[in-house]
Design a protein around this nucleic acid. Structure first.
Lengths: 241, 241
DNA sequence: GAGTGAAACATGTATATACATGCCATGTCA
DNA sequence: TGACATGGCATGTATATACATGTTTCACTC
């Protein structure tokens, strides 16, 4: 009666999956202490070296934190990729000081079968997709337009999210064990709809961030249009291990 | 008479250092085959598990490529960070097909003590810095302006580089064992000089990539101005291990 | 009560051993 | 000459064992 899966993957992979599942389900919360290696040896029925390898790899991947003589702990959500701070515009406005006000308007929110434009983004073509359109304000001036295509099945409680208080990219980052990320950044003249929503002249430039996230075979896409005049920028910092 | 260092680090670390040293010195060239695990066991005097761990970690770090039943090989220089394909505009133009021509003009190339603007970039303030200004053309139309501040001491043979044939970011990526990378992307109206060099109206938008690379304490900076009308974009794809 | 030392316990490393798995070259047989 | 089997060799995994190293706890001593 083992808690490990019965797939064909190696044992140490099963141990890793077991640990990740417990973290993902919330059973082992952030900074919580894991059972010791010997506990896992007893409860999982594998050798200590196997457990040790699994925990060591999870540590080097950033999921765990280990302290010799003390124990193993769930690491805070890691910066899984670069560009994660990108477009967290709510925080940016907040950091500018007290006299600025951040605001958000949710313009549209529908669930619908994937149309052509979404199929082009390689969405799972069967299930409906949550499409939402959000405008970010600073002092009642629109500075950013976010267009999201997210498969709700992928993200737990995605539909319950409060878009006004939580940065969406940050939330997605937290919840999706992403397997691949693609960023495309360009500067394009605003189309009619973008110009209307951002209250800007129609041919003025938008800074566009197209972000595509894979989790297994499913894809989530976020397009962010930023009014150039707003002088926001997108940044990232990467520190290799 | 072991080939391993006599520092206090663990054995498997010494094996890793030994392998990396042989790769770095060029003794084991790219795609060359390494001695087998058993060979290394005999020549280094450590157990196979220790050798195996070292090689496994180097593989997961992207330095080696291993094929079961075949052997271990020196991996091609890894994509050390995301955004590496960024701005490799020479390749992008070449990939568009035969009817396009890529061109480059080196406008300015001086070595000078770091002025204020460079000190602001946290350069080593003592040594002179190579400053160069390069314009990329497609079919005689300027599409991109690159402004580089590089410490020549950092990059071997940097001054001998042929800017017209080799993508600079690619070259820097190859040569510098970077410890940290920062990207800042913004869309800004072109200033007088940028407008003149890119032959564009002065207030039209530029897509600007500011790239700052640390190697230890020294810093290299590349600013890239792309004319929005050229419809080039900056992209990256990240695949976590 | 304060300080000390040792036990208990955690992770970290190193080794020997065994077997599994995959690739390739060699040799045999048709 | 071609197809196939096989042995050799490479990496991959799993285990038991031993010891090293760092932290906490707790009992004992002064």
């Amino acid at each position: 009666m083992s808690a490990l899966s019965d797939t064909a993957s190696p044992l140490y992979e099963k141990v890793k999956d077991f640990v990740l599942a417990n973290i993902g389900s919330g059973k082992w919360a952030q900074n919580a202490r894991l059972p010791s290696e010997n506990d896992l040896v007893n409860s999982l029925g594998v050798s200590r070296m196997t457990v040790h390898r699994a925990l060591r790899e999870l540590t080097s991947e950033g999921h765990l934190r280990r302290v010799q003589g003390v124990g193993t702990f769930v690491a805070p959500p890691k910066a899984q990729s670069t560009l994660i701070e990108v477009s967290n515009i709510i925080n940016e406005i907040r950091d500018r000081g007290g006299k600025h006000r951040a605001g958000v308007i949710l313009l549209e929110r529908i669930e619908h079968p994937a149309p052509a434009i979404i199929r082009a983004f390689e969405f799972d073509q069967v299930k409906p997709v949550d499409h939402s359109l959000v405008v970010h304000f600073e002092n009642d001036v629109p500075v950013q337009l976010e267009e999201r295509y997210v498969n709700p099945a992928l993200v737990p409680h995605y539909l319950d999210q409060d878009f006004t208080s939580i940065a969406t990219l940050e939330y997605l980052q937290r919840c999706t064990p992403l397997t691949e990320v693609e960023h495309l950044i360009s500067a394009l003249p605003a189309g009619p709809e973008q110009a209307r929503l951002l209250q800007m002249p129609e041919r003025d430039s938008c800074l566009v961030l197209h972000r595509k996230t894979w989790t297994g075979a499913t894809v989530a896409t976020v397009n962010t249009f930023t009014h150039v005049g707003s002088r926001y920028s997108l940044g990232s910092r990467y520190r290799p291990t």
